[in-house]
Each structure stands twice: as structure tokens, then as C-alpha cells.
Design a protein around this nucleic acid. Structure first.
Lengths: 200, 200
DNA sequence: TAGATTGATTTCCGTTACAGAAATCAAGAT
DNA sequence: ATCTTGATTTCTGTAACGGAAATCAATCTA
């Protein structure tokens, strides 16, 4: 201010923005919301404001847009109840079909099964008494679950690699990693391509 | 702490709550909202969370009908202990021959399949993308894993019992037990008798 | 041995604090 | 009569804070 004797401006007690003079015309509250919902909530508040401007005397707005979508799963096979209460193979809604043999076996002349003993692969979802599908024609890769023979003993483990050769990784923290050492006979007999289990 | 020589506790680098471990399972943002809308927005977020919990328990992805083998295969099932040599069809260690459909399906006309999503039954060895064998003709018992419909939503859980009726037990400690309440529509559509999985 | 306890660690969430923007005031200038 | 001006007051988005909640693994207990 160059002119120190300016007589403009000055104290105006009671001046200042009046309450309700903001964007929403009412007091505000700070809320923490999931980041994914911040945008939608902002959009909603914008829309609410636009509606309030349009309906100056009527500012009722339902939060209908924000009711969670409770759509049911739409499964054509079973959304209608047939008379007996159970769908039948002849039901017109059938869309998917499955045969376990076709699903599990790619190359039947190179496939056999092994029943599992123990829990060393439990974290990979392979439980005691599961039946594993073994495909001899598959080329084993690092990370594959394989049927291996180490010193004449069969074992099912994840194939790993170490500096000196192969290792067999259990999927259960209570079991040690098996390092294949010099002088040991080691062979991969097939790759586990699937598994099946009976519950009852 | 009266005993200064306690040896419990202590530094654990890397301990601490993991990201995504909060109420919303995602990062949050602070928003200022009109006070009149704070309640409705809170209600919305609560409802959204409840829906997310329901969705997480909803582990049925798709259904499929059983179809018989078009070409019957019968492949060897070996014991896991074969002393030496490559297993052969004449090998004494062949436990028996096995067809996956015969192994998994007891009652053709009452069987269908469900593909699973999520991890709510992971401790029962039911992983994402597993295909479950559902037998409609089985009478469900307490302790059975069942395909149930609760308020129009399919879910696979262990059937439990409470004082007031049924409950559905997840096999994952991170999921709550589902209590079936008065007024809810609840039905068991079949018993899980088996499962299968493709690894590759 | 399995499960509980413990002190430390890390993230989360509701609230408070902060600071610049926005709106308002009336005396003085044009 | 209208515009300008420095001061005043409220508003709004974001930063900061602090206790709660969840997690960790060494140690203890049954």
C-alpha cells in the first residue's frame, strides 16, 4: 500500500461470511470413506446440490442410488423351480455340461493316478487320500507339482531348483525342503495335472 | 508390569497390522459432507460392507450338468510305494483301475457340478476354481458340506446346527459363521460328495 | 507339543487443527 | 449511485494427531 493515508477499507465489525453461505448451505461434517466410494459420494452430493437448486422449495432426495445392488445370482439352470423342486437333465435352461474324465484327463495313454498319503502338500490343497492325476507326457517345469522318485522312494512335491540341481518343495511349513544331492538317484515320473477327492 | 524380568513380548520387525486390514478393506479418504447427509452416507457404507461380506461368502461361480463318458477310460491307480521300475499295467502294485466319473459320481441322474470361487472353504481343501460334485439325492446331515440357497444366494458351506435352526460354517477363520434367521428363505440343494481340480 | 500370553510394530479411522478461499461489511473514493 | 478497499467471518479440503485394532514371534503354560 503506497498511500499510507488511504481511507478505504477498515474494520467492519459483524462483516464476514454468514453461516449457511457455503456450497451446501448447511454445516458440514468430516467423514472418512473407502477411497473407492469417494467419487460416487462426491457425484451424489453434486447431484443433490443441483436438485436443491432446481427444487428451491422441495429438497427431498432419496438415497436410492446408494442402496447396494442386491441382485441375485442369475443362474439360468436353477432360477426357476420346477414342480418337483429339483432341476432335471431335460431342463431347457441347461447351459454347461461336464464329464469328470474329460475334465481331468488330457492324454489317457500317458495318464495314471496316485493316491496321496500324508499332509506334506496340504497348503496346495492336496489332502490325505486325494487321488492325483499324473501325466507322464508333460515336460516338468519349475513350479510344477510332480511325482518324483528319489532314491527309490516316490514323493509328490513342487519341483524347485537350486544351484546344484533340483529341490523338492513341500507345501506345509512343518516339512523340510528336500535338496537333491550328488549321488542320489532322482527322476521325475510325471506332472500332477489334476486331483480328485471323495467327501462321502 | 510388576515383574521387570519378564521375557515375553519384545520387538518383532515386520509385525503390525497389514494394509487392507481395516473396516473397509481398502484405503480411505476424508471427505467433508453436508451434515444432513452424514447419517445416510454412513448407513450406505454400512450396507455396502454387509453386502461385501455376503458376496465373500457367496462362493458359487457356475453350475454344470453331469454328462456320461462318451468313451469309457479306465486308468491305473497306483499305490505310492513302488520299489523299482516303471509301473506297468501288469504291475502287482496297481490298486485298481479307475475312471474319474465312476469314482466321483454315485448317482448320475442326481449329480451336478459347481465351480467354486473365493477361499471361504479353504481349510476343507476347497480352493478357488475347484469343481464340486453335488448329489441331490443325498439327505444332508450335520457336518456335511452342502450347496445351500439362502435368500436367493447360493453358497457352499458346512451344515451346522444351532438352537434356533441351521447355521452355515465356513472353513476359514476369516469368515463369520452364517446363522439362518427366522424369515430367511433357506434350502439345501445338495450334498457335496466330491471335488476335482485341474492344476495345468 | 499346541495354544495362550506378551511387548513391540504397523495400519486404521474418527476427530481436531490448519490455512487459504469465499462471502460479507461499510467507510471512502469516483 | 456505484465501485473499491481492508477487515471480518464462515467454509472447505487436507494435514496431523492419537488411541484402537490387527499382527508378529519369543516365551510361557498346561
Amino acid at each position: 500500500m503506497e498511500n499510507d493515508s488511504s481511507k478505504r477499507g477498515g474494520p467492519r465489525p459483524g462483516a464476514g461470511r454468514k453461516p449457511g453461505g457455503g456450497l451446501y448451505g448447511e454445516p458440514t461434517t468430516v467423514l472418512r470413506v473407502p477411497t473407492s466410494q469417494a467419487g460416487p459420494i462426491r457425484d451424489f452430493l453434486s447431484a443433490l446440490n443441483r436438485k436443491r437448486q432446481r427444487d428451491a422449495q422441495d429438497n427431498v432426495l432419496e438415497l436410492a442410488e446408494f442402496v447396494p445392488d442386491c441382485r441375485k445370482i442369475s443362474l439360468p439352470l436353477y432360477t426357476s423351480k420346477v414342480a418337483a423342486g429339483f432341476p432335471s437333465p431335460a431342463d431347457d435352461h441347461v447351459e454347461r455340461r461336464l464329464n469328470p474324465s474329460d475334465y481331468l484327463v488330457d492324454n489317457d495313454s500317458a495318464t495314471f493316478f496316485v493316491r496321496v498319503k500324508g499332509d506334506s502338500m496340504i497348503d496346495a490343497g492336496i489332502f490325505e487320500d486325494d487321488v492325483l492325476v499324473i501325466d507322464r507326457s508333460r515336460v516338468p517345469q519349475i513350479g510344477d507339482i510332480v511325482l518324483a522318485v528319489l532314491d527309490g522312494e516316490f514323493t509328490v512335491k513342487t519341483l524347485g531348483k537350486s544351484k546344484s540341481g533340483a529341490r523338492l518343495l513341500p507345501a506345509n511349513k512343518h516339512y523340510p525342503v528336500i535338496e537333491v544331492k550328488e549321488g542320489q538317484s532322482f527322476e521325475v515320473w510325471g506332472v500332477v495335472t489334476g486331483s480328485m477327492r471323495k467327501f462321502k
